[in-house]
């Protein structure tokens, strides 16, 4: 599997793909991404007709339905020069699956290949796209973090390194280790409800690692894992929580006008 090569995004306008979960459940994450990008003097817009990347239907095996949703994505982002998203799994869907999904399509094939080559997850955009590993951030108070690596981002896009670099260079952020950080939390899209008991067992394991970890806050780059793990942590009245890397970094921005 070779991912489509991307051009240097420096100096280009960024179109935010906020993702359906962030839009409806975690809008603060979307603003965190906007704040960070604008702090880096990146021009950001928000194509208003965006909805979802189509991954839930695709992963469930309903390809025709997924394709319809993906077409809406292509329409919404037809004027985009660079697309940035706070989700490793959505970025993987676009970069990894869109070209195949539209391979035989005379109407959308070229556009699918185009967006696959301009899409970035937020941390890889900063580190690999803009070449910045230190954002000169300072958190208001000392905090101990540990990463949970979301699977699609980790294995399909090689994410994790960039996020650790950015948090590691942030003042007042101490980054520790979470045991089995690269083991799946059990979300897997509709797997979480179709195979709820197995999903629950995988979550149980993840939560026991989190409780045993010295960090109070677990860092993740995917709202889907975050929603699933936080759902379990709150059900067990845990004092710990998972937060999105973008929100944690944004909390360290010098001029917070939120």
């Amino acid at each position: 599997m070779t991912l489509p090569k991307r051009e240097d995004p420096q100096g280009k306008r960024v179109s935010l793909f906020v993702t359906c979960l962030v839009d409806m459940l975690y809008p603060a994450t979307g603003w965190a991404v906007v704040d960070i990008l604008e702090y880096l003097n990146v021009q950001v817009d928000f194509p208003p007709n965006q909805t979802c990347c189509g991954q839930p239907g695709f992963n469930a095996g309903h390809r025709a339905d997924a394709r319809q949703v993906a077409i809406q994505f292509l329409k919404a982002f037809k004027d985009a020069q660079v697309i940035v998203t706070p989700s490793g799994s959505c970025a993987a869907m676009v970069r990894h699956e869109y070209p195949d999904l539209f391979a035989e399509d005379p109407l959308w094939g070229a556009e699918a290949a185009r967006v696959a080559a301009i899409t970035w997850e937020i941390t890889e955009f900063i580190v690999d796209g803009l070449g910045i590993t230190d954002l000169h951030l300072r958190l208001p108070a000392r905090n101990v973090f540990a990463f949970h690596d979301a699977c699609h981002g980790l294995r399909m896009l090689g994410l994790g390194r960039a996020a650790r670099a950015l948090l590691g260079s942030t003042e007042n952020a101490v980054v520790g280790e979470l045991a089995e950080s690269d083991v799946c939390c059990g979300f897997g899209g509709l797997f979480s409800v179709k195979m709820a008991d197995v999903s629950g067992a995988m979550l149980e394991r993840k939560i026991s690692q989190i409780e045993a970890c010295p960090a109070e806050t677990i860092v993740c780059g995917d709202a889907s894992c975050l929603m699933h793990i936080n759902g379990g942590l709150s059900r067990q009245a845990s004092s710990k929580s998972v937060r999105h890397i973008a929100e944690i970094l944004a909390a360290g921005l010098p001029d917070k006008t939120k």
Binding site: P48, S192, V193, N230
Partner: peptide, 25 residues
């Protein structure tokens, strides 16, 4: 319905008062 398996082990977050796109507008 078919999503009820979620609630066996997990809470679900509240829907944001205003969605991101609403706030952006």
């Amino acid at each position: 319905g078919p999503l009820r398996g979620w609630s066996k082990f997990r809470d679900f977050p509240p829907f944001a008062k205003k969605s991101f796109r609403q706030q952006w507008r």
